[in-house]
Design a protein around this nucleic acid. Sequence first.
DNA 1: GAAATTCAGATTGCATACAATTTGATCGCC
DNA 2: GGCGATCAAATTGTATGCAATCTGAATTTC
Lengths: 237, 237
Amino acid sequence: MKPATDAFPVHHDGQDDRSQLIREALYNAIVERRLAPGTKLVETEVGKLFDVSRTVVRAALQMLAFEGLVKIERNRGAFVAYPTPDEARQIFESRRVIEPEIAERAAERITSADIKLFQAHLKEEERLLVERGPNARRAAIKASGDYHLMLASVAGNLILERFMRELIARSSLVIALYGQSGASSCARSEHADILDALMARDSKKAADAIRHHIDHIEEDLDYKVVSNSPLRDALRV
Amino acid sequence: MKPATDAFPVHHDGQDDRSQLIREALYNAIVERRLAPGTKLVETEVGKLFDVSRTVVRAALQMLAFEGLVKIERNRGAFVAYPTPDEARQIFESRRVIEPEIAERAAERITSADIKLFQAHLKEEERLLVERGPNARRAAIKASGDYHLMLASVAGNLILERFMRELIARSSLVIALYGQSGASSCARSEHADILDALMARDSKKAADAIRHHIDHIEEDLDYKVVSNSPLRDALRV
DNA sequence: GAAATTCAGATTGCATACAATTTGATCGCC
DNA sequence: GGCGATCAAATTGTATGCAATCTGAATTTC
């Protein structure tokens, strides 16, 4: 399993290193909501930031587009994705399909070393929730997503793990757009509940706990009222 | 739902047209096994074939790499993926997670128009199985995969549909490598069983039928003995 | 003769140049 | 003043050039 709090290196298939690096940087920026949905990503600007040519940036943007985090419009450029309510529903439906099964497998495979990492991660999440300030808030959002990715990692299926990574990231965009309570999405106690089920190696209970958790996250959304920038909605959606 | 027998246009997010076209052509070639696992895809050669520059080809290859159909090795080039036994197991595990849920949703949502398309497709599959010759065989393989994609399409979730597309394509590679009986993977009668369940709108039965079907496909595999080209294995894997 | 070495050809990785397209701003017109 | 046309700047799409790397074969060495 991978480190609990730190950056989550994307499982990379042997792609070239530099665009992978840019992809991860943008990925993190999107997941942590430093980049708002709809933000334009100009190739030359990103390139300057990382000191690479547009070629490399384009490769990164195309990867992100492929996993639905970025939308590329021909001759117009790349934008941070702006999921529609319908896409949002599909994202959560997909999570409901995949994540409980992941939890079941994780419950069967979890080791004591994994458990320690989960506990440490949970403590960190708790700490970040108490702390104030935008940075802490961002870190909390990231940590919350990473919890789900740790779960996927323990389940031991790289393909499902990749699917989950995509779904988690897109969920973050959905929550940014349609989340109501400022509460950073994941009630910490539910993460603890899931870990309890894992420690008991109770795969059915783990699956149920995840289902409840996803239900709660989605209950906090309001697909009708669009949250942040109503004007941009009219333009982009 | 999409046409039954014809090429399955990849749901494209608004990517550029030309690399998308190349991607689809290579995708079909791989799924229909005109391109064997391990085959090298030289950028300039592919470019000449489609009359485009390497830039466009590279974009296509990177997309295919992202969905696991092609492996890009740094400074060495792109190769048609050569799934290891372990990857193969993960591919089928992922299918077992996703496809029964797809079948359930399809059973709930199927329309009479869909049913007609399925029936036509089934008939076509039957016809192709009887016919002889490599082209008919290829068409049969393709049609068999398309059946599963039609199912995904009826389920009405574009994300799961994309995941399935990837899994079906990679399954085709796995079967090419580890398949034992020449039988082109999908027993036609099982496809008919699945359709029966769909027509009865019996989602549980549909899910079970799919599970059985996947079991049978995987039972025909032998991950120990590598099928086609033992020498290439030693080199590439 | 077998193994190691060298080197040329082929191929990829990346940067850049140029054409096509979009954007948004100025200007003219009603 | 509002509306539409015209044009320049910005940005993307694509091709291409060059350096770095790999490949495979001829050559040398033992």
